[in-house]
Design a protein around this nucleic acid. Structure first.
Lengths: 236, 236
DNA sequence: GGCCTTAACGCAAATAATTTGCTTTAAGGT
DNA sequence: ACCTTAAAGCAAATTATTTGCGTTAAGGCC
């Protein structure tokens, strides 16, 4: 398969991506999410709708792209001086953020796209936990098993947020944590290799609100109408 | 608020719903899911597209409605003679079904709609577990804590399927089960009341493939275009 | 069983979203 | 500074979605 020609990530492409993402955020705040449309977002961003369709493909992919950026961490978990309180504070904040209306909407956006965004977001959570473990080791403290915390603290929290079958409380989160901490790595289930299994080194602490170099989404390469009965085959 | 006039659930309405659901299933099998359109489904079902828009609202709601019906259990979990093996078999089948491409697609459909479908689906799982517990009690066996199984077996399984961050194995599921069963109801976290907290009695065993009376979706009552700048307010 | 009310559906037209061909702008390499 | 070409803009075409109104038939009542 031919390698794609080089993607342009500077200048106008970056500015347009920022403008479109900001437009999505503003419009999502002001309107019912289900009523967002691409022409509306394009008008708010000051671009042509076809720019959005060519770059992202459809509304769902755009919302997912924005959601992943919003879920991407911009700072390490707070350092409270001890691993237990670091983890506790992280989980408390995680639950509160994910169970908020904005958090729920972002998760739905992430799951609704065909892209591998959920896997990427799982990596964010694992990354935070890795940071807390590394910090504990730097202090010569006993750490915790990241897979245990993901399976028995993070997963139940996410499950109940997504299914909406019960309201979450801090007591509930604390009890999940206590349960994991009362039996550290013993009887850990086998965790077969997966895309996110390799743990990444924690990134340098960036501080809240720091600006990152924009990741520019390459344009969709799918040709023609989505339906198989498309009238005109694409040019590329 | 005025009570809605009575909904017609018989004859043509029921036939149209069945036809549309079957059309969705056939087209989803034959085509890329992301390429499904309402006009296409309408043609396959032999109805007018506006029928679908009026009844379901949009494609997303239709796919979710179909997904919930496909996820709705039509039979009790198999009876293997002992609670431990009942639960084990149930979890094995649950993981295999949910992690299949069809299972993943159905879950994404369920989460993508504004309706409270996820909560309903959570109820299905809880219902199965309740059946297994009731069966155990009928045999004078020690049962298990349903909340524990949901939090520490079902939730991790669903988490990894949704996030796609690792592949699931039967060993992994068995280990999750072993972990719960090695500490039955001790230290259960507080489970605050929620919509699905009240446990429903298990339904009479229906046998595989039994036919249920159709649930007919009432038409959408939302008026006008989704966008706030709709030109013509609806009649009803 | 016939009649009546009216919910749901079909049809067609209008509106809006999405796609596509072509031109213009400007990113980035030399 | 120049050149190649990716990305964006523009406008037209196509398709999806919405809406007004007429038709069909569900279901309650007598």
């Amino acid at each position: 398969m031919a390698v794609r020609e080089r993607i342009r990530v500077g200048g106008r492409s970056a500015r347009i991506q920022t403008a479109v993402h900001e437009a999505v955020k503003r419009l999502a705040t002001e309107n019912n999410r289900d009523e967002l449309t691409v022409p509306q977002i394009a008008a708010e961003a000051g671009v042509t709708p076809s720019t959005i369709y060519r770059r992202w493909g459809d509304l769902s992919a755009l919302l997912a792209d924005v959601a992943v950026e919003r879920l991407r961490p911009i700072a390490d978990p707070e350092d409270t001086g001890a691993v237990a309180s670091d983890l506790r504070l992280f989980i408390e904040q995680f639950m509160e953020e994910m169970s908020s209306p904005v958090g729920r909407a972002l998760m739905r956006d992430v799951f609704s796209s065909e892209e591998a965004y959920p896997c990427q977001c799982a990596g964010f959570t694992r990354e935070h936990l890795t940071t807390i473990v590394s910090r504990a080791r730097a202090r010569d403290e006993a750490a915790f098993d990241i897979d245990q915390v993901l399976d028995h603290v993070v997963a139940p929290i996410i499950y109940h947020i997504l299914y909406g079958d019960r309201e979450l409380t801090l007591d509930y989160c604390h009890a999940l944590l206590d349960r994991v901490q009362s039996r550290p790595t013993a009887a850990a289930p086998p965790a077969p290799a997966g895309p996110a299994a390799a743990q990444r080194a924690p990134r340098e602490k960036a501080g809240r609100g720091s600006v990152r170099a924009p990741r520019v989404v390459p344009p969709k390469t799918r040709v023609g109408r989505k339906s198989a009965n498309s009238k005109s085959p694409g040019r590329r």
